[in-house]
Design a protein around this nucleic acid. Structure first.
Ligand code: MN
Ligand code: MN
Ligand code: ZN
Ligand code: ZN
Lengths: 148, 148
DNA sequence: AAATAAATTGCAATCGAGTTGCATTTTATA
DNA sequence: TATAAAATGCAACTCGATTGCAATTTATTT
């Protein structure tokens, strides 16, 4: 489920999103593109050049701007913190497996939900306790009330 | 997607789970059974009898025991807090729709994932931004290492 | 290149859902 | 009733994430 091969271009991605090219954004996006799985804000901070000593607030603000621009997607965990991964054409939306024991999230191939239980058996999955589908968007009521 | 009609019995549910019948547990479970959608810990606190003035810590501990006994299931939101709903035979696992605008979570009927986009169109869904499948359990590595 | 306006960043403080330790109260069992 | 076990309240705490504001950096215009 890793990508690596033929992935996004940092400068081009920022330009297309209309985000100015700052050293901080380039550093964070480079980490995200090179990641082989979902990362937490703390993971990202650790993987940036220590010389840059980026503030954690900056990490969160950059992650927010990336999320708003669909450069990354945010994956909530059962532990109350979020993980992040690239959301580009090289990495379309897919299921994730979260191990409650080692608290690691791993990516799973896209699959038909009704076949999920059997299909995930071949992955790094010993036991499945729950399969949860989470749909996000805007409801009719909010659209009617012009909240968006 | 509401239940109401022919739902679980409070005393029987606690007994089957091996949980002692305390006034607090009865109050929380009654709220959960009567709920017409996922509730937050704060929602539950508000819906219990003010005369009982239950402590929020007690709410969280009761929710944990209910979750461990599969009486309820926990639904993480994009806002960093959890919602809870009954996890009994009357309410099998199903997708949820979370509106980013009004921050309300509503239940959706079980559906084939590949048909999700079209199938959810008839619900209180104006626009779908993301369909995320979240699988929870234990990975092979953790099982091998006897962490469980 | 220098000046200006706009956007980004760091720092400290703060938020808030959720947790922990411990004393007190309630429940189950004898 | 007496006793042990479990549940609860209270206060303090954790930690990921957010906010306000001043300082810095970037983009844009002379
Ligand atoms: Mn992934
Ligand atoms: Mn539901
Ligand atoms: Zn694991
Ligand atoms: Zn809404």
């Amino acid at each position: 489920m890793s990508l690596k091969r033929e992935h996004c271009n940092v400068e081009g991605t920022l330009r297309e999103a209309g985000l100015s090219q700052t050293a901080r954004r380039v550093a964070v996006l480079t980490v995200m593109i090179q990641a082989d799985g979902p990362l937490s804000a703390g993971d990202i901070l650790k993987r940036t050049d220590p010389e840059q000593k980026i503030n954690k607030v900056t990490i969160y603000r950059i992650l927010s701007s990336f999320r708003e621009n669909r450069i990354i997607r945010e994956l909530p965990t059962d532990q109350g913190m979020n993980l992040y991964e690239m959301s580009c054409r090289h990495n379309p939306s897919h299921p994730h497996f979260y191990c409650k024991t080692c608290r690691t999230m791993s990516c799973l191939p896209p699959v038909n939900l009704s076949q999920a239980q059997e299909s995930f058996a071949g992955q790094n999955v010993f036991r499945i306790d729950d399969v949860h589908v989470h749909v996000t968007g805007v409801c009719r009521q909010c659209h009617r009330q012009d909240k968006i």
